[in-house]
Computed example of a mutant assay.
Amino acid sequence: MLAFAAAVFFLIITPGPGVLSTAGVGSGYGAKAGTRYVVGLFIGNTAVALAVVSGVAAVFLANPAIRTALLVASGCYLLYLAYKIAFAGAKVAFIEKAEPPGVVGGVALQAINPKAYAVHTTLFSGFAFLPDNTGLEAVLKLAIMSAIWIPIHFAWLWAGISLHRLDLSPQRQRMVNLFMAASMIVVVVLAAFAPGGLADG
């Protein structure tokens, strides 16, 4: 069980679409919008976990075309989020400040995020600690994951909010937002060229 908890911690805390976009939303839009986004991410994350446990995800992800479609959709959505975050604090007259992604945006990201499916498949198919009661094991795993997932995402949100509260000049705030957006674009590129990504298609 401790090995499982450690795996959850390191898999979740490392930069990925969820935590990077959480920090970006916090930096670009502040606490309320960031909290709504994290709630959406949590709902989506739980839905993905249930899809993996029930076997529904395995049926769909066995199809290479569906896996590719998910990767393309998540990449496009992350680029869209990156665009919104990049210009959230911009004081450029011809760019209208975009609305934050909110709960629906968080759910949507997790639903099409291939990393979420891969992480849950790894965690639920391995690290068995109750082999005689797989149902209880799945429930305990979901509880442990949630107990770790929630504070980590709020920590990333706090990091983004802290940047937001520094009352930076418009130019510096825009630079921070552009950095957050660029980090998300790097995630998209890495996902595309990772084994099994678009580069292998």
Rank of each mutant, 00 (worst) to 15 (best):
G18K: 08
G160Y: 00
A199T: 10
S27D: 03
L140C: 07
Y117I: 09
S27Y: 01
G105L: 06
G201K: 14
V186R: 02
A82K: 01
K97R: 11
S74C: 11
A69S: 13
V56E: 13
K32S: 09
F193H: 05
P195Q: 12
P170H: 07
A194T: 07
N113R: 06
V53T: 07
F179R: 03
V39M: 12
K115Y: 12
T14S: 11
W156L: 04
I185E: 00
A143H: 12
V19N: 03
I148G: 06
V72S: 03
P195W: 10
L71V: 13
A93P: 11
G201E: 11
R67N: 11
K97Q: 09
V53F: 05
L81N: 01
I66N: 07
P64N: 14
F127H: 03
K91A: 12
A199L: 10
H120I: 06
N45C: 10
T22A: 03
V139D: 09
M175Y: 08
A118V: 15
G196T: 06
A23Y: 00
L2G: 03
M145R: 10
W158S: 02
H164E: 00
L11A: 15
A191G: 10
T46K: 12
A143M: 15
A93N: 08
K91F: 08
L190A: 13
G44P: 14
G16F: 09
T134D: 11
V38E: 00
S183N: 11
S169E: 04
A5V: 02
A5R: 01
K84R: 15
K115H: 10
K141M: 04
T22S: 04
F10V: 11
G197P: 02
R165D: 15
G26W: 00
G24E: 02
A3V: 04
G18T: 08
I12V: 15
A86M: 08
V25N: 00
T22F: 02
N63A: 15
A118R: 11
V107D: 04
C76I: 13
D132H: 03
Q173S: 09
G34V: 00
L178D: 02
A147C: 15
G55R: 09
V107I: 15
S21D: 06
T35I: 15
